[in-house]
Amino acid sequence: MTTTTGGAAFDAPVNATADDILPAQGYRLRTEPGGITIRHRDTAGLRYAQQSLDQLRAASDFPAVGYDIADHPDFAVLGFLLDISRDRVPTRRTLERWLSIVALARFNQLELYCEHTFAFRDHQQVWQDASPLTADDLRWLDVRCAAPGITLVANQNTFGHMERFLRHEAYIHRAENPDGFDRGGVHRPPSTLAPPRYRLRGSAMGLPAFGSGMTSPLVVDDPGGGVTGPGGIDGPLMRGLSTGFAQSRKSSP
C-alpha cells in the first residue's frame, strides 16, 4: 500500500472492472481526487476490495489521503475450524456472529468440528442432553455462508473421541477397550472404536449424516489417519451415523 496527499470524496463514484492479469482473489484499489477505481480478478477480489474501501471510508481523513492498494491471498483456501462439541454448542445467533467475523478476516472456509452434538436420527440417547445442531441448522448456515463466499464444511469426528457414544450400552460392543484403559496413571472410559470390525473404504456404507442436505463438502476427522475429504474416506466409521438425520427441533435462533 502506498499513500499520497489528496484522496477521493466519501461519496466519490466507484469504477470497478475485472482484470484477468491479477492473481486469483486479487484486487487493486486506488482512491484519488478524480474518483475511486477497483480492478479485480474475480468475485472474491471485488468483495475484498469493497471491504478495504469500507474500512478506509471509516476514517475521518479519508478525503485527504490517496490510497493505492494491491492485495491477494498467498493461499487459495483460508479455513477457520470451530469446535462445536467440547464447549457450548453455538446457537444460530452465535453462528451468524462467527460468520461475520470469519468473513471480515477474509477466511473462505468455515469448518465445524463435531463429535456428538449433531441430531443423528437413530442416536437420540447420545445427543439428547447436548443441545445439538440439526440438519436444518446446517442448511440454514450453508445458505448464510454462500453470500460472503465462504464454503461451509461439516467435519465429523470418527474412531477416537467417541466416549459419548461408548458410554451407552447400545454402543459399548463397538469399543476397542470396552472396560476402558489406563493412561498417565488414570483409568479412563472407553473412547476408541475397534478398527478391524468397523473399517470402511469409500462410501459403500454412506457418509455420516452430519452435513446431509448441504451443498458444501463433508470431511471425516480420523485421529488414526488424518482428515479425509468426501471422495476418499479410508477410516473407521460407525455404521449408525450413516442412517440419516433427525428433523429439526429448533424453532428459533
Rank of each mutant, 00 (worst) to 15 (best):
G206L: 09
I150H: 00
V89K: 10
D182E: 13
A146E: 12
G202R: 05
P148K: 01
V153R: 12
A154F: 01
P148D: 00
F120H: 08
G149D: 02
V153K: 08
L141E: 00
P223I: 03
W127P: 04
D136N: 14
E115I: 11
T158Q: 14
G180S: 10
G184I: 03
Q125N: 13
P223K: 01
G160C: 09
Q128Y: 11
R201A: 12
W98T: 02
L193F: 06
F181N: 03
T117C: 12
E169G: 09
L218G: 09
R92K: 14
L166G: 02
E96S: 12
E111P: 04
G185Q: 03
R144A: 15
G211P: 05
Q125R: 14
G149M: 03
T91R: 06
R197N: 14
V220P: 00
Q128D: 14
A194H: 13
D87A: 15
L112E: 03
S203P: 01
G224H: 10
T91M: 06
V143R: 14
V102T: 11
D221E: 02
G160L: 07
V227A: 06
S100W: 00
D137S: 14
N108M: 00
T215C: 11
C114L: 03
H187D: 09
S216C: 07
V220T: 07
Y171G: 01
L218N: 07
L95E: 08
S203Y: 13
G224E: 05
P90L: 10
G202L: 05
I150Q: 00
A175N: 09
Y198C: 14
A105F: 10
A135H: 05
H187S: 14
V220R: 01
Y171D: 02
A135L: 08
H116I: 11
A146M: 06
D129L: 10
T151H: 03
A105C: 13
G226F: 03
D137C: 10
L152P: 11
R144Y: 03
D136T: 14
R164F: 09
A135E: 11
A135N: 04
L141N: 00
I101N: 09
L141M: 06
D182L: 11
G224Q: 11
R167H: 04
D182P: 06
P148W: 02
F165R: 00
D137R: 07
G226C: 06
F159E: 06
T134A: 09
N108C: 01
L112Q: 05
